[in-house]
Measured scan of single mutants.
Amino acid sequence: KDKDLLKGLDQEQANEVIAVLQMHNIEANKIDSGKLGYSITVAEPDFTAAVYWIK
């Protein structure tokens, strides 16, 4: 199951987060929520590491 990592990002921010996570071998998903911006989700086992790397 995926957990929400970040919400309300613009496309550039979302792409930067995806890139950082991929560099650390964390699979992440970018979801277009329309006017609400983009959300990033990661698998539950990767959540703690993902939070660490996006600081």
Rank of each mutant, 00 (worst) to 15 (best):
A14D: 02
V51F: 08
Q13D: 04
P45W: 14
Q11E: 15
I18E: 02
D2C: 14
L36K: 09
Q22V: 07
Q22S: 10
N15S: 06
E16Q: 13
Q11Y: 12
S33M: 15
A43V: 04
T48V: 12
L36N: 13
A28C: 10
G34S: 03
A14L: 04
Y52N: 09
A43M: 08
F47I: 04
K7E: 08
Q22G: 07
D46Y: 11
A14E: 01
G34Q: 04
L6C: 14
E27I: 15
K7Q: 11
L6D: 03
N29R: 14
T48S: 12
I31M: 05
T41P: 00
F47P: 00
G8W: 07
P45S: 15
K1C: 14
V51K: 09
A50K: 02
D2P: 13
T48F: 13
A28R: 01
M23G: 07
I54V: 08
K35R: 10
D10K: 08
Q11R: 12
I40G: 00
D10Q: 05
D46R: 03
Q13A: 11
A50E: 03
T41H: 05
E16R: 14
E12M: 10
T41D: 03
I18C: 07
S39P: 00
A14M: 04
A14W: 03
N25H: 10
I26G: 01
D46H: 07
S33N: 15
I54C: 05
W53S: 01
K30L: 14
L9D: 01
N25F: 08
T41K: 07
W53I: 13
M23S: 11
G34C: 06
A49P: 03
L21Y: 00
K3M: 13
E44V: 08
F47N: 00
Y52D: 11
N25C: 13
I18M: 11
K1W: 09
S39Y: 09
K35T: 11
G34M: 03
I18N: 00
N29D: 07
L36D: 12
I31N: 07
L5G: 02
G37K: 06
V42E: 01
Y52A: 07
A49Y: 07
L5R: 02
Y52I: 07
I26K: 00
F47T: 02
L9F: 02
D10E: 05
N29W: 11
A19Y: 11
V17P: 00
K7N: 11
L9Q: 00
Y52F: 10
G37L: 07
A19I: 09
G34N: 03
E27N: 13
P45N: 14
I40D: 00
V20Q: 07
D2E: 11
Q22R: 14
K1R: 12
G8V: 03
V20S: 04
K55D: 12
D32P: 08
I18D: 02
V51T: 08
K3C: 15
Q13I: 06
D10V: 04
A49D: 08
G34L: 04
E44F: 09
N15P: 01
D4W: 15
L6T: 02
Q13G: 06
D2Q: 15
T41W: 11
E44P: 07
M23H: 11
E27M: 15
D32H: 10
K35W: 09
W53F: 07
N29C: 10
K30G: 04
V20I: 14
K35M: 09
I31A: 04
D4N: 12
I54T: 05
I18P: 00
Q22A: 14
G8K: 03
L21F: 02
S33L: 15
T48K: 12
I26A: 00
Q11C: 14
M23Y: 10
I40H: 00
P45G: 14
H24T: 01
A50M: 03
A49L: 12
D46I: 06
A49K: 09
W53N: 00
D2G: 11
L21E: 01
A19K: 13
E16S: 11
A50D: 02
L6W: 05
G34I: 03
Q11D: 12
V51S: 10
L5P: 02
G37V: 10
A43Q: 07
G34V: 04
Y38D: 01
W53M: 04
T48W: 14
V20G: 03
D32F: 14
W53C: 06
E44G: 09
K30F: 08
S33P: 01
K3W: 09
Q11T: 08
D2S: 13
F47R: 02
A28L: 03
L21G: 01
A19M: 10
E12W: 12
D46N: 06
D32Y: 14
K3H: 07
V20A: 07
E44A: 12
K1Q: 11
A14P: 00
I31V: 10
D2M: 15
D2T: 14
A28N: 02
A28D: 02
Q11H: 11
K30M: 14
G8C: 13
Q11N: 14
E27Y: 13
Q13P: 02
Q11S: 12
D46C: 09
D32A: 09
D4I: 15
E12S: 09
N29G: 05
D32G: 10
L9M: 04
V51I: 12
V17Q: 01
K3L: 11
F47H: 04
Q13Y: 08
N25Y: 07
V42W: 03
N15I: 07
N15C: 12
N15H: 06
K1I: 11
G34F: 05
N29P: 01
E12R: 12
M23N: 08
A28W: 06
E27R: 14
D2R: 15
Y38V: 07
D32Q: 08
V20L: 15
E16T: 11
Q13M: 09
E27V: 14
K7P: 02
A28Y: 09
K35C: 13
A19W: 11
L36R: 08
K35I: 12
T48L: 14
I18F: 06
D2F: 15
E12I: 09
V42C: 05
A49F: 06
S39K: 14
I40V: 09
S39C: 11
I31C: 06
Q11V: 11
H24S: 01
T41V: 10
S39M: 11
D10F: 04
L36A: 11
I40Q: 00
A50W: 04
K3A: 06
L5E: 01
T41G: 02
Q11M: 12
G8I: 03
D4L: 15
T48Q: 13
D46S: 04
Q13L: 08
E12K: 12
G8E: 05
G8R: 04
K35Q: 09
L6Q: 04
L21K: 00
P45Y: 14
A19V: 07
I26H: 00
A49V: 06
Y52K: 09
Q11F: 14
D4A: 14
H24E: 02
K30S: 07
D4E: 15
T48E: 14
V17W: 12
G37C: 09
G34P: 04
E16W: 15
T41S: 08
A43N: 08
K7T: 13
L36S: 11
F47V: 04
W53R: 01
E44R: 06
E16L: 14
K30R: 08
S39W: 10
A28P: 03
D10W: 04
E12T: 10
W53H: 06
Y38L: 04
Q22E: 08
V17I: 14
A43C: 07
K1F: 10
S39N: 08
K7D: 07
H24P: 00
L36G: 12
E44H: 06
Q22I: 11
V20E: 06
I26Q: 00
V17E: 00
K55F: 14
M23K: 12
I31P: 02
V42I: 08
A14F: 03
D10R: 09
N15Y: 07
T41Q: 09
Y38Q: 01
P45C: 13
N15Q: 07
Y38G: 00
S33R: 15
D46T: 04
P45L: 13
D2L: 14
K3N: 04
I26R: 00
L9Y: 02
A14G: 02
